[in-house]
Every structure is written in C-alpha cells, then in structure tokens.
Computed example of a mutant assay.
Amino acid sequence: MVLSWLKNKAVAARAGTADARGLIIFATVEEAMHAEKVLKKAGFDCKLVAPPPGMRKGCDLALEIDLVEQTAVARALTGRVSYMGIYPFKGEIELLQVEKVTWFTGHVMVKAGNMKLVFDRKTGVIVNISGGGCPDIPYLYTRLVGTHLEAAPRPRDEGRTLCALMLDRALEKALEIWKEAAST
C-alpha cells in the first residue's frame, strides 16, 4: 500500500518528464521477454521495443522503462533475469506495431513482422501459420493450427524468439478482428 502511494506520488512529481526514459539491453530475445513479464508483474510500466542500431549489443529487443525507476527495476530483475545494462535514451523507439490484414473469401491472414497467421472467417479456427526461421515455430505450429482463436495458447508465452513475439502480435490482431466481427 505504501509502495503504491510512493509510486503514484513519484509519477505525479514527474509529470511532463517524458525524456526520463531508459532502455534495458539484453543478450537474448528470451531474456527480454522474460524481463517484461517480471517487471509487469512487479507493477512497473515497461514495453518491448526495438533498440536503435547503435545501442544493440545483443538481441533485437530491449525494454523501455521510466529511467527514474532504474534502481528499483534493477533490483526487481536481480537474480531473475540477466541483462547487459540500463541506458538513458531520448527520441522515438518502437517495436514495429504494423500488422497487415488480407481478406480472402473464407479466411483472413494477419501478418506481423515476418509471421503470418490465417484463420477461418466463419469458425475462428486457425488454419495455418507461416514465416520466420526461428526454431520454436514448428512447435508453435502444432500448438496453434486447428485451435480456435480464443482458445489458442499465446505464442509469446510458449515461444522464446522474436518470431514467437511477432506471431503473438498476429494472434492479438486476429482476435481483435474475430471479436469485432462477432459483435456486429
């Protein structure tokens, strides 16, 4: 209770300090994805982003955090997730959020990054996934194909690669399309 009060007080005091951002750099995609889960569970505001080329030291994912919380973030990760460093950052950074949707007569294909997910428009069942060259994609194929969108496991929870993360974004968009169609 006191911790959340202090956190809210700190947020209020920092209002307007959008420049106080930092990047946590990781050696692997798996570490970045695990760190996001750990920090969100601990109540920190963070998001996966693509670090600028000059800041890449390991994988192509980093976590954007509020730099004011750097010490607490480091404490939350210690012993749980390995990272290469936390660095101040100014400017625009964003993991590509671009999804492309292609409508076919009986199916919808959602592409995120290099991953594609195709589902049946009438039943909501995933009929195919493709793309990527990551080693966890064949496993994710067996877990997703033949499953209803709403019952499908989250690729980001079952996979360990950037391909799994992009497939998860395709699944999110497919679910959004499915739910929107169901409500009309």
Rank of each mutant, 00 (worst) to 15 (best):
A74R: 05
C59Y: 01
L149V: 03
R121Q: 06
C163M: 02
V49W: 01
L67D: 04
R143A: 10
V101M: 06
L6I: 14
G16S: 09
L117A: 03
A76Q: 04
G113Y: 03
G159D: 01
R21S: 10
E92P: 14
M115I: 05
L61E: 03
V81R: 00
F89S: 05
G133A: 15
G133N: 14
G22T: 00
V101H: 08
W5L: 14
I177H: 03
L162N: 03
R121S: 12
A50E: 11
K116Q: 13
R75P: 12
E158S: 10
T102V: 09
A181R: 06
R14A: 10
L162M: 07
V108K: 00
E69P: 07
P53V: 11
C46R: 03
V110H: 01
G159F: 01
T161V: 04
I24T: 03
T78N: 15
I65A: 08
G91R: 03
S130V: 08
A15R: 15
L39N: 03
L3M: 13
D19N: 07
K7N: 14
D157P: 05
L67P: 01
M115H: 02
M109V: 14
I137C: 06
A182R: 09
H148M: 13
L144Y: 02
E158A: 10
L6E: 15
R80N: 08
A20L: 11
M1I: 13
R56V: 09
I177Q: 04
M109A: 14
E94W: 09
I93Y: 07
G131Y: 06
E158F: 08
V110A: 02
L171T: 00
L149H: 00
